[in-house]
Design a protein around this nucleic acid. Sequence first.
DNA 1: TATCGTCTGTGCGTTAGACCACATACCCTT
DNA 2: AAGGGTATGTGGTCTAACGCACAGACGATA
Lengths: 235, 235
Amino acid sequence: MIADPNEPVANRLLAALPADDYERLRPNLREVSFSLGEVVYEFGGELDYVFFPTNSIVSLLYTMENGDSAEMGLTGNEGVVGIALFMGGGTMPNRAVVQSAGGALRMKAKILKDEFARGGRFQQLLLRYTQALITQISQTAVCNRLHSVEQQLCRWLLLSHDRLNTDELVMTQELIADMLGVRREGVTVAAGRLQDAGAISYVRGHIQILNRPKLEETVCECYQVVRDEFERLLG
Amino acid sequence: MIADPNEPVANRLLAALPADDYERLRPNLREVSFSLGEVVYEFGGELDYVFFPTNSIVSLLYTMENGDSAEMGLTGNEGVVGIALFMGGGTMPNRAVVQSAGGALRMKAKILKDEFARGGRFQQLLLRYTQALITQISQTAVCNRLHSVEQQLCRWLLLSHDRLNTDELVMTQELIADMLGVRREGVTVAAGRLQDAGAISYVRGHIQILNRPKLEETVCECYQVVRDEFERLLG
DNA sequence: TATCGTCTGTGCGTTAGACCACATACCCTT
DNA sequence: AAGGGTATGTGGTCTAACGCACAGACGATA
């Protein structure tokens, strides 16, 4: 189905477009629905579409030959999944997996490329988003090196919370462990401490964010760096 | 001084330009010389120039509030330092430090932006380089999480070696430790093992790469992923 | 309401790497 | 050749996180 023009644009990147640009693109946007765990693209896969999440979150992660995996970044309604298309690579050397079920707006690769080549506001927004994503990935690298599992869990919860309209995240500890590249038990222990502190509650794949300021106390500076940069570039 | 038109173009990104594009740009390139440890740009600093390294290497790294640091990627003669300029950010949320002294070609920010806006081959090359850099940063994130200091040291040595014309790296263990975000003693131990294996020799800030295949045996898959992606996008 | 599968909690031995404290070795200067 | 500064080597202790094994706890389904 074609996106309802009367609804507010639910993706912030698209919402930042001038009205005439958006009107031109709108007929090329189709709503799609992502289910938890769905693979948006595989390592090295060709991309036929890009996706502008509305209330879903997509994780970018890399899986090693031995099955170990780690997330490098995540995209919600502030961005776009499939930057390789306009960056010129065609394929991305990573995987994109739906981390939180929900909707997205889909655009054909060719439309995106043509629009990007016009060089206007849309190009500018896509490039700025890409730079913000680079910051997120960089900070993930630094955080992986220097900070504790508990701090990283906080970072991950806050980044996810920022990209959703709800205080409930549907996500097992097992999956979070894969994202953070740590053991499931490590997540259990870290989540247990956050629960004891009253910051969250955790019941069988359903996390409630109870006290966001508490999480912000516990998180390392990496979170704020990423948030500030997204604000500066896209705010 | 203006780059000598008779010398081969010593930066591979520039060398990939069509002759007429390069001729147009050439008068705007000036040779500069980087000394070890020189800061190319600081966190949040404005960029007046971009730099195309010829036989120098520049590290992109992030320094935490408490002084801990970690590298997210490095740029040699295959790329450009200062991508924020054309990506639209203006400033970068990291530092760039000269990791291996040598030369670079400098271009004024405005010239670069105007050229980028033309949308031709130069734009394409800059974007492709940026995507390759994203892969490098991503893989750094994954490697930081999942692999040993020794493997990461190998990755770092190989990435650096690829970007130089010599088998000697001038670099103390202290500085490598800052790059990798580990302790100096950790580097000593890892380097000692590589030395025992005959892969390198290490004397007071001078590393000789003695047996590159040995390093390639020891390194994790992260290195090859990055190398392949640079080859695919820019090769 | 009994059962089964999934998710979470916990304990224990192991380990990589951090932190700390020196010892040594090399190089440059005087 | 003596001395001081810098770079590297080494050993001991400590801790976060891993790997493994299993117990409990919840929730869907029969």
